[in-house]
Amino acid sequence: MARAQGDRKRGRKKSGVTSHVLIFLLCISLMTLGKADISAMNSLRTIMTGLTMPIADVVAVPIRAITSMVESAQAAAKLREENLKLREDVKRLSRWRLQAELLQSENRQLRSVSGVIVPDATTPVSARVIAINADSFAHVVMINIGRDKGIRRGNAVTTTDGLVGMIIDVGAKHSQVLLLTDINAMIPVILSSSSWPATTVGQNTTTLKLRFLPAEATVEVDELVQTSGHGGVLPAGIPVGRIRNINGDLITIDPIVDLKRLSFVSVLVTDEDPGFSTKELLDQAYSPLPQEEDGFSLQGLNALGQREDSDVTQNDGQQDGN
């Protein structure tokens, strides 16, 4: 009798271990399927996110309130110091505003003369951030608007300071934003003062790396980096970050937006579908290199780091022909 009970107990333990191992293997399979970017998995994720979003939103309210209270108390402590700094900033910004107005006027005149085509207009739609990445595995945030506001995959997400990231998943009333610091985020950029093209790559930390920069390019610390518009997914001219450190080939960038303090963002909704797809991005995203001579050309590396044989103008022509 006692032996039979012992056998039953051992049998139960064995089946418990087997089911434990099987469920663990199920988890590994789910991770692998997710990596394979299967559409059924993406749809499942979108549905689950839609279901869990209201709970995440409710739980975030007291945390946001406490954080805001602590930050307000900290700000009150150094109010005087900040006031002086702000006065100086106002003076400096007034000078900049005057200069910006002059440049804007000059820009308008030059455009009318040269016939430059102005990029498609985008409509900014405001959204509240519900959840920010708690782990370093993925740098993704969730926002509280989705298809109901016309959001599409590939739309740029910004604040008043600059680029935050781009939409990667859209639900009925929520969207997921891939931050530019995510390891999978590659943004085609140009250096603002020298116009050298490059690509920023996230590292799942608070900084970015600058890659595919031509060897001849000169970079300066604190130089502004902005989107180039290459690839046609993100609009050109959105500030991305400033060069922080140059250590040989390793150039690090500080994002211009304080991603730790995101509460509201703007999604730049375009009238046309940005046509975001990983494959198209890899096929189309150019990080042009100049020729060895002095002149510029759009021949260069694609997002895979492969050198392209034909230049962009020729490609466009061929596509039109097709």
């Binding site: 199920l26 988890c27 590994i28 399979s29 789910l30 991770m31 399927l33 997710g34 990596k35 998995m41 499942l44 994720r45 689950m48 996110t49 869990t52 995440a56 959840a131 990445n133 708690a134 782990d135 595995f137 993925a138 993704v140 969730m142 997921q176």
Partner: peptide
Amino acid sequence: TVQGSPFGY
């Protein structure tokens, strides 16, 4: 789902 990490991780 909430964090955007791979399913099952």
